[in-house]
Amino acid sequence: MTVLTRRSLIGVGAGGLLLSSCDKLSNSVGANDFVAKAQSATYGWQRLVGRQALAQEFTAADISPVFKPNGSTNPKDDDYRRHVDEGFANWKLKIDGLVRKPISLSLADLRALPARTQITRHDCVEGWSAIGQWTGPQLGPLLKAAGLLPTAKYIVFHCADNYGGEISKGGAQSTGRYYESIDLIDAFHPQTIIAHTMRGQPLDVAHGAPCRMRIERQLGYKQAKYVMRIEAVDSFAKMELGKGGYWEDRGYEWYAGI
């Protein structure tokens, strides 16, 4: 009895020690920074082996019956509500930042542009997937028309929705406004489109009306919805918490190709 008790105590003690060591490890800034280096390996490797590769496209028969809306599905922000009420009649998409000629497009302008339609798979970071059909102009030609400056390195998508959530790691403040960013390889990728149409219908509010990004070789959180402004930058270090996106500021990888 005594032996059993002692043994079980040792067992519980060893288990507890293991768990608390794991906690120390997962909370260690140094250890986390170290393991985060694997992200550069993933990014470098995927850019090396598949720089221009296209994401797989599917047929209409493969489309998910219900495409799960995720993240913000009905933004409460006043400006956005006003646009919804006005049917996006006064809404404008701005393309600016490090460009020679900033562009401003109404929804009608956006819809009048040559568009690409693609049926692709959307992979959420959580693990679920959905296949959807998207239509919209490619981002690349619009950036060319705006005259991207040679100093531009990233394209940032500013969104209308404030997703809120946890604030501040390391003292910096995040407003909670959704934003995302990609490199120029993805920005000029043929499947990177500003989707205004989903399965032949105008994009609904739950899926990001009036337009959302499709960046088909990355995870769902890169597919910014409610896009209001597309900005070319040389760095996003001064933006929000400096990691290049809403979820990136909360610990997720900037390169979401994995």
């Binding site: 598949g50 590769a53 797989q56 994995i258």
Partner: peptide, 12 residues
């Protein structure tokens, strides 16, 4: 297979 970037690189 779960990596969308790798899937594209592997051409389906």
């Amino acid at each position: 297979s779960m990596s969308p970037g790798f899937d594209a690189a592997a051409h389906g």
